[in-house]
Design a protein around this nucleic acid. Structure first.
Lengths: 341, 341
DNA sequence: GTGAAAGCGCTAACAG
DNA sequence: CTGTTAGCGCTTTCAC
């Protein structure tokens, strides 16, 4: 386990110089820098991050806390964050808080506070004020992805606008009977995403002078199965069948497409379907959707963190950075079949 | 940032005693142990993992390297590993090697070797001998999930047997024309999984006296879309349409079900489909499959690591631990429709 | 059972 | 530009 001394000996300099040469902090002549680099290379020397962290107070490691990992959205954000961190020379330590209360407390008490991370990225997790302030008091920046957090830099898409855009797409095609499959209350705690998207949907309808029909709403759990079941209710109704469905997520939208098929309805001729996400399966199903870009969100969260960690860099500023989104029109949406009415 | 001294002062003992009391190493009287615990609690003291690691040489952190994160299988393994590690008081640092060559080298050179992890879990990644020996030389145990690694404890399902079981299920139902959608060569490098499953499929056929028809094979990329396209070729052939399809993964099997539907074939009346995995979508599609349990695999990998890290624990022994699997018969498989032939 | 003291391997003033 | 010298915060002999 070769240490800094051996490199210093081989290069014929002091350990301080080795440290400076290798870290790039402080001035070292090009000649010695080279000599040190060669010695380090030859011995296969790698700094001990622990010793370094202990001495500097910085760990070059950031903690990422998420509620689920095996969901496309979350794993994509993490993947984006991971690659961005790597390129900045940082490690990523993962904390999956799915387990609920007890695990969550334990993570905060014993892990995040254990001086192991320089900062934390919280993905779609509504941290409590106490959790936030404890971290901030320790001098650890936080950035949130997926919704506003009190006193914390966050990234989030404008859920109201995104939902509104999806609904407007349907309206512009000529649809007037537009159903909505939204998230159920289980997901409400995380930044009220279901409610915001519903608000956007209703706003779009009302702006067009269409009154909102509560019978055209179903709640589901953001899964394909949930969307399928919700859509069955909506599309199976012989009296009041909508000509279009706006689902709060692509997975639910895909469920709706499958439900339509099982009911003998053609998409988009008999019913149009639009979602939100641009999930990995959406292209396959020809789903029109408002894309959000989770990997990008992860990367961007990292950049914000780097700004806070290295104040030399230009910092952008605003507390809540809006994220890009984009309507992708594929084959699941079309004009309503006028002959039908 | 309260340190060990302050706890020692408050409790009226030396830092050595605090260390012993809190870590459980060495004897401390019950009375002082309590006093120390209370003091630590009161001050909100948490050990600095860096200082501790530096002093002990152990980091209580394990590195997990994976090729992808946003795939159900991988994220499930990681999730299982994460929760197991947490319960042992370990952190999990994630390295996504998807980026390929350069990133991979960098991870090995600069991250894993940086004395930051006590051990590594390699998921579906064929480490080179040099990578393995470097880690082992550093005294860092490795456990592999998903295939044998030279000189390393590994966990893997018996791909040949799993494929054979799936195929036998079809044979037992009376199918004789059974197509196979396997993985393409891109996935071959990781432990030859496509080839092994194909071997199992062929073995089952041959054991029943059925000769293998190369026209009944299609390669795909393990995705729903890939399975869909492959199945279209297989099932669209009017001359030699199989009555059943065995796909190497559930995602491809789901693609096959969707392809059958689009071709006007009913599943299972016109064609039976079986996969491998028990993917999160499989139940929804009624897919019969051979389940493997990725979260369990992650957990089990951690247990093996703990055995190596804490030799006091009873170690199991064998180098390659076989993993459980289980045939789940749902509604995508049935007897072939005899009237058809 | 408990304390004193010597490091763990590196970085950061401070001199020169 | 480079060396000397203190620590960073904990753990662990070695005595008592």
């Amino acid at each position: 386990m070769t240490g800094i001394n051996e490199v210093a000996d081989l290069a014929g300099v002091s350990t301080a110089t080795v440290s400076r040469a290798l870290s790039g902090n402080g001035h070292v002549s090009v000649a010695t820098r080279d000599r040190v680099a060669r010695a380090a290379e030859e011995l296969g020397y790698v700094v001990s991050s622990n010793a370094s962290s202990l001495a500097t107070g910085r760990t070059k490691n950031v903690g990422v806390v998420i509620p689920f990992l095996n969901k496309w959205f979350f794993s994509s954000v993490v993947q984006g964050a991971e690659s961005a961190l790597l390129s900045h020379g940082y490690d990523l330590t993962l904390y999956n808080l799915g387990g609920g209360g007890d695990e969550r407390r334990s993570v905060f008490e014993h892990f995040l506070l254990r001086k192991r991370v320089d900062a934390v990225i919280a993905i779609s997790l509504e941290l409590t004020t106490s959790e936030v302030t404890r971290l901030l008091d320790l001098g650890k920046p936080i950035v949130g992805v997926g919704g506003p957090l009190p006193g914390v830099r966050t990234l989030s898409i404008d859920d109201i606008e995104v939902a509104r855009l999806a609904t407007e797409h349907l309206l512009a095609l000529g649809h007037r009977d537009i159903a909505h499959i939204g998230g159920n209350s289980d997901f409400e705690r995380d930044f009220h995403l279901p409610m915001n998207r519903r608000v956007g949907y209703e706003a779009a309808l009302e702006a067009t002078g269409i009154s909102v029909d509560p019978n055209l709403f179903q709640a589901a759990d953001f899964s394909i199965q949930g969307g399928y079941e919700a859509a069955k209710q909506l599309l199976g109704n012989p009296r009041r069948r909508p000509t279009a469905v706006f689902a709060s997520s692509d997975e639910m939208a895909i469920g709706a497409i499958l439900a339509a098929r099982d009911l003998g309805l053609r998409v988009p001729q008999d019913v149009s379907v639009v979602g939100i996400d641009d999930h990995e399966l959406s292209e396959f199903f020809g789903l029109s959707t408002v894309a959000q870009f989770p990997a990008l969100q992860g990367r961007q969260a990292v950049e914000i963190l780097m700004d806070q960690l290295h104040p030399s860099r230009e910092s952008a500023g605003s507390l809540n950075t809006p994220l890009p989104y984009e309507l992708l029109v594929r084959s699941s949406t079309a004009r309503p079949d006028v002959s039908r009415r």
